[in-house]
Amino acid sequence: MSAVSRRTQRLMGALPFASLGIVAAVDVLSGPDLNYLSLLAVGSAFASLVGGVRRTVLIGVVALILSLLLALYAGVLGDRQSNMSLISIAGVTAASILATVGRQRRERELATVRSVAEVAQRVLLRPVPRLAGHLRAAVSYTSANAEARIGGDLYEVVTGPGGVRAIVGDVQGKGLEAVETAALVLGAFREAAHDEADLRGVSGRLEKALNRRLSGEEFVTAILVDADPCGRLTLLNYGHPPPLILRANGEITLAEPDDTAPPLGLAVLEVDGPNPHQVDFAPGDQILLYTDGVIEARDRAGRFYPLTERAFLLKDDDPEAALEALRLDLVAHVDAPLHDDAAMLLLRCRDG
């Protein structure tokens, strides 16, 4: 749980007792002519926000005791208004107990669903090899805040007979359905990356797999990479943010294709896929693939994360350390839990 969430929990936990104290103080200071006993029920109402049933009962009992003491102090104990206040407090406490039971049940159900999704996601998103052919690889995956649903970000690196192939993608939507779609894409990619002669063949296999499952309104943005040992990258971009190319001399560019293509899974549009986009990739060069959770992360002022400007953080000789530095900078920029998962895959061409 983040520091912000813990602070919010503490404030919500103190709210019932603070409201009881304020009502009691106001009632005492205003004198016997004005009676605020019925407002003590507010403390019982706030009790259902956090904590368990015992805590809710405790706050209700404290409210009842305060009501009796204040009524005795004002000389109205046993009066009709005093009795109505006691009944109101007891009624609100009973309702808060029921609300607490319902909230705890929903929290358990949500925790179970989230746990299943997280386990499924961890199984799918296995660690990438640190050495893949002539490349060094590192991956970073930052989950969104606890209130957000599990997303469908995906990545994979496969070493085949002709070189290294990689994919980074983002499934539209959240939850277990997104995880299921991500599993379908990764399974098809892992198989096709070994079998197909070129990236168009790989993407064709992905399209077939998705079109058998998706309804036509769902889709997957993705970028596929084929890195051959001759110092060249071939990219296919399906509606995904363009990767960053970081040259050994410090030059930073975006690998934007000449033409755009819709995401995978939208065969209903009957649009041809993208043309392969080739990029030179010499020893010491790097390519950073990422999902939109990175570039759409906002700080407290609403400014997007300036990925291109912060790419100099990837200068560390160790790709994993370099990517971790960038991830920490992203988290510091937001200064709060992320609202969308952020996946990054860094590939670096080795010197030999």
Results as ranks from 00 to 15, higher is better:
A45F: 13
F189D: 09
I287A: 01
L68V: 14
G293M: 13
R247K: 13
R149V: 11
L269V: 05
V123K: 04
D153C: 05
L246Y: 05
A267Y: 05
G43A: 10
R54P: 01
R106V: 10
I22P: 00
A132I: 08
L98E: 10
A71C: 06
T260F: 13
A336V: 08
Y290E: 00
N249P: 09
L69D: 10
S48W: 06
L347S: 02
I295G: 15
Y36C: 08
E217N: 13
P263R: 11
P16F: 15
G302R: 05
M84S: 04
R327Y: 02
T260I: 04
S143M: 11
G13C: 03
A3T: 01
E191Q: 15
H194Y: 09
G273I: 00
F219C: 02
A227K: 04
D272E: 12
D351Y: 10
R114E: 11
P243W: 13
G175H: 04
P161D: 13
L236E: 02
G162P: 04
G265N: 04
V179F: 04
V271T: 07
L246H: 05
R54H: 01
G102H: 13
S30H: 15
V62R: 09
L206E: 10
A343P: 15
A25E: 10
L39Y: 14
I167V: 11
V76T: 15
G239H: 11
A166K: 00
T291H: 03
K208P: 00
L15S: 15
A321C: 05
R350E: 05
L176A: 02
A117S: 01
A182H: 03
G169E: 12
A193C: 14
P129V: 06
E156A: 12
L176W: 10
F189E: 07
G102R: 14
H277S: 15
Q286M: 14
E217P: 02
E118N: 14
R7P: 04
N83H: 12
A183C: 04
D316G: 12
A322G: 14
A137P: 07
V139E: 06
L69R: 06
S115H: 13
R54C: 01
R126F: 01
Q278V: 09
D341G: 11
P32E: 00
P262R: 11
K174P: 01
K174Q: 03
L346W: 07
